[in-house]
Simulated scan of single mutants.
Amino acid sequence: MATTLEVQKRETKPHSNITSIRNAGRIPGVIYGYKAENVPVSVDSLTFIKAVRDNGRNSVFSVSVDGAKLNVLLHDYQIDPLKGDIEHIDLLAVNMSEEVEANVTINLVGESKGVKLSGVLQQVLYEITVSATPDKLPEVVEIDITDLDIGDAITVTDIPKNGDYEVITEGEEVIAAVSAPRTADEPETTSSAVTEPEALHGSDETPNK
């Protein structure tokens, strides 16, 4: 069952309305998609963040606009690069019986055989795109790297088939690999994941208003 999310319709002019909405602790957004055409809305910031943390980034939320019930997904969001606050959200109205595409986080699980031999694990891909009906979209895809030896790599093709969703990302894309141990003369390199803002994760901090 979809979690209810309270939204309010908002005026789009003048521009100062956006500032006042944010100052009031609300996030401006828009609903579009199935049976909805660019409906400007706003949602309470704390309520929205809690709903995403509790239910997941790809969860279906039920909203009411002008008396009409819609099922929506968090399709996109914009972040203030300085404050880290969510500045705007796009809510995609969906037909629960039709497949949609969504990005899903990859989690590596297990300890690689190659790492036990002092190999270096490098994760290259942190998200994949999947297609599924809205109620079947996963929050994460776990990949077991236990058998990954030095010189081995796991690609998207190696992800086990799942009856709930189809992987859309190109199969030859490398997810992770284990390279040989570094020598003393080799510089250490690090890779960084592209992550969602802290606001959408389980932090105890209250977002800035």
Score class of each variant (00 low, 15 high):
residue 107 N to I: 12
residue 158 D to G: 06
residue 96 M to T: 12
residue 110 G to S: 11
residue 108 L to R: 04
residue 154 I to F: 13
residue 120 V to H: 09
residue 152 D to G: 12
residue 206 T to I: 15
residue 191 S to L: 11
residue 166 E to G: 05
residue 90 D to V: 06
residue 165 Y to P: 01
residue 110 G to Y: 11
residue 132 A to L: 07
residue 62 S to K: 15
residue 177 A to L: 14
residue 115 V to A: 09
residue 166 E to F: 09
residue 140 V to Q: 11
residue 94 V to H: 09
residue 62 S to W: 04
residue 130 V to C: 01
residue 195 T to M: 10
residue 119 G to M: 01
residue 122 Q to I: 13
residue 193 A to M: 10
residue 171 G to C: 04
residue 195 T to I: 05
residue 108 L to Y: 07
residue 134 P to Q: 09
residue 162 N to W: 03
residue 153 A to H: 11
residue 138 P to Q: 00
residue 203 S to C: 05
residue 141 V to D: 02
residue 188 E to D: 07
residue 76 D to C: 02
residue 136 K to W: 01
residue 199 A to M: 05
residue 165 Y to W: 12
residue 170 E to M: 08
residue 127 E to K: 15
residue 194 V to T: 14
residue 83 K to L: 13
residue 77 Y to Q: 06
residue 129 T to G: 03
residue 134 P to S: 08
residue 144 D to N: 13
residue 205 E to R: 09
residue 182 R to A: 06
residue 172 E to K: 13
residue 93 A to Y: 04
residue 181 P to E: 02
residue 149 D to K: 13
residue 129 T to L: 11
residue 198 E to S: 11
residue 71 N to H: 15
residue 151 G to L: 05
residue 80 D to L: 00
residue 135 D to P: 06
residue 66 D to K: 14
residue 195 T to F: 00
residue 156 V to R: 05
residue 103 N to D: 13
residue 201 H to T: 10
residue 106 I to T: 03
residue 176 A to I: 09
residue 91 L to G: 02
residue 174 V to P: 00
residue 153 A to Y: 10
residue 190 T to Y: 12
residue 131 S to L: 04
residue 112 S to A: 14
residue 175 I to C: 00
residue 96 M to N: 14
residue 91 L to A: 05
residue 124 V to T: 12
residue 152 D to L: 04
residue 110 G to A: 08
residue 92 L to Y: 14
residue 142 E to H: 03
residue 196 E to D: 15
residue 101 E to L: 05
residue 184 A to G: 02
residue 84 G to Q: 01
residue 175 I to D: 00
residue 66 D to S: 15
residue 138 P to F: 04
residue 122 Q to N: 13
residue 75 H to L: 10
residue 86 I to V: 15
residue 83 K to N: 11
residue 108 L to H: 04
residue 154 I to D: 02
residue 92 L to N: 07
residue 101 E to S: 13
residue 147 D to L: 08
residue 187 P to Y: 09
residue 189 T to L: 10
residue 167 V to Q: 03
residue 139 E to F: 03
residue 94 V to A: 10
residue 175 I to W: 05
residue 134 P to D: 09
residue 144 D to W: 00
residue 134 P to W: 10
residue 189 T to S: 09
residue 127 E to R: 14
residue 186 E to N: 06
residue 160 P to N: 07
residue 69 K to C: 03
residue 89 I to T: 06
residue 183 T to P: 02
residue 170 E to F: 07
residue 174 V to D: 00
residue 121 L to C: 07
residue 95 N to M: 06
residue 105 T to R: 14
residue 194 V to S: 11
residue 203 S to K: 10
residue 104 V to I: 07
residue 156 V to H: 08
residue 74 L to M: 02
residue 103 N to K: 15
residue 204 D to W: 05
residue 126 Y to D: 13
residue 67 G to A: 06
residue 94 V to M: 09
residue 156 V to G: 09
residue 101 E to N: 14
residue 168 I to M: 11
residue 76 D to W: 08
residue 196 E to L: 14
residue 130 V to M: 00
residue 181 P to V: 05
residue 204 D to E: 11
residue 139 E to V: 11
residue 105 T to N: 07
residue 96 M to H: 06
residue 93 A to E: 05
residue 170 E to H: 12
residue 126 Y to P: 03
residue 121 L to Q: 06
residue 70 L to E: 07
